[in-house]
Design a protein around this nucleic acid. Sequence first.
DNA 1: GGTTGACTCTGACACCGTGTCAGGGCCGAA
DNA 2: TTCGGCCCTGACACGGTGTCAGAGTCAACC
Lengths: 274, 274
Amino acid sequence: MFTIGDFARLGRVSVRMLRHYDSIGLLRPAAVDPHTGYRFYRAEQLRRLNRVIALKDLGLTLGQVRAILDDTVEVAELRGMLRLRRSELAAQLAADTARLAGVEARLRMIETEGRMTSQDVVLKELPAVRVAELTGVARSYETPDISTVIQPLYPELFRRLGAAGVVPSGPGLAWYEATGEGESVVVHAGVTVAADSSAARDFGIVDLPAVPTAATIIHHGPMDEVAGSIQALATWIEAHGWRADGYTRELYLDYCADEPEKGVTELQLPVVAA
Amino acid sequence: MFTIGDFARLGRVSVRMLRHYDSIGLLRPAAVDPHTGYRFYRAEQLRRLNRVIALKDLGLTLGQVRAILDDTVEVAELRGMLRLRRSELAAQLAADTARLAGVEARLRMIETEGRMTSQDVVLKELPAVRVAELTGVARSYETPDISTVIQPLYPELFRRLGAAGVVPSGPGLAWYEATGEGESVVVHAGVTVAADSSAARDFGIVDLPAVPTAATIIHHGPMDEVAGSIQALATWIEAHGWRADGYTRELYLDYCADEPEKGVTELQLPVVAA
DNA sequence: GGTTGACTCTGACACCGTGTCAGGGCCGAA
DNA sequence: TTCGGCCCTGACACGGTGTCAGAGTCAACC
């Protein structure tokens, strides 16, 4: 018979934990002095303690450990628990590996720049979204070309939406795709709506697909300075082991024609693991 | 200006968390209606939110994130935090990899045996320990040879200890090493003591070194059935990617000569990564 | 028998990030 | 005006562990 302190030393466990295991019924002392409340353990209880430790070290919860040790789980169930735990661990490993890569990218950034950027890229899942849009064609991806095409589209889009009695349900957004002919580009100027797409109208209704993983960055200031933010986004993507996989969406979170330098835009670029 | 719900959707964060960030001063809403308490956020606050998310995703605590964003840490300090985090993550990866290996070993065990062993091996650190001992030589590692040599050593050891006024401070233990001549073995029969080693006595005082990592198993029953437990220990060590690195110590946790089948012994085998 | 120091008891609080619930107020649209 | 959906605060929960306070116990030594 060991006192709790001796038993804790033998089992390399804290006294606190032995008391805890007692209170949750995971490992009850062999005897308790009814007068003093002192707990006493038998050497053979080390077997159970060891089983507890071994299972706990696998990352199972104490509740699961108790269920296993008390034989209230079938073998099939036990196998299921272990399989689940295995996949959790695999996910954890992947996540931590990514975190580690992130930390190291940050450290490199500090070494080379002497500080950390305030341009922060965030990975997000993008839900599918229904958009009312007008399109145009720009001569190239050059900012001035795009601007001159897209600028007039929005007032016209809002005019037509108003005429059709459709109210935007969210912010405006834009995206671009190559026409395939030279450098020219199809410009989509849209706004999120909840309308259904059945009726014919003088604007397009398209459903942008959900994106499992998109790298996003907040661009501050006028859109003709967007190149820097795009650059930062691309650099981040490369440094973190991703690869662009689609068109960048621009989400106009805050925009006022009078003060373009106060604009706030989120750039969203679908990515996949490189 | 966005309501908390809209802002949460934009930032892919729960409303709960935005309120939490407010309460800990990590991200305060741009405006709060003094009458209703409603929080309102500006689009440009997404920048800060994104920085929070990005740093949090590195595994930093919210307190660290706040310190970093509020510029109360020097660059050197920041680098230190990231280095620390990097080493934490590396440790975490190693631990999770080991856990995963453990889970997989367990799954294999279930597949082949239809159940999980109740012989559980636990890795421990062994502290250095001072031991009073007598030694003998056995003809071989065979259990009968060992037994006949070790059995008489203990009564004699306790007799001499009593005569010298030395009281054991812990359980008895034994270990064996090859003599180098044939199959014969030096048998050490000892007991932990706190005495100092200065005076000359009719028993040996040796300090067993600490062991950073030992695989241990509890053996139940008489010592002449120890082979099975040793076997289980060896199997586990091999299956989990370790290698024996020293002599097995036997720790007699419970022993009574009349009822050897009730004995409880811990076998401790130092290991290193294979 | 008394003192003392090491041990034990219970009960509580803390950590950290997040979910969830209860009970109540607010807002906009029909 | 009513209703559905949003927002507010405050609280509790999770899980494994440390730590503290205040009180009781034990063993050894004088």
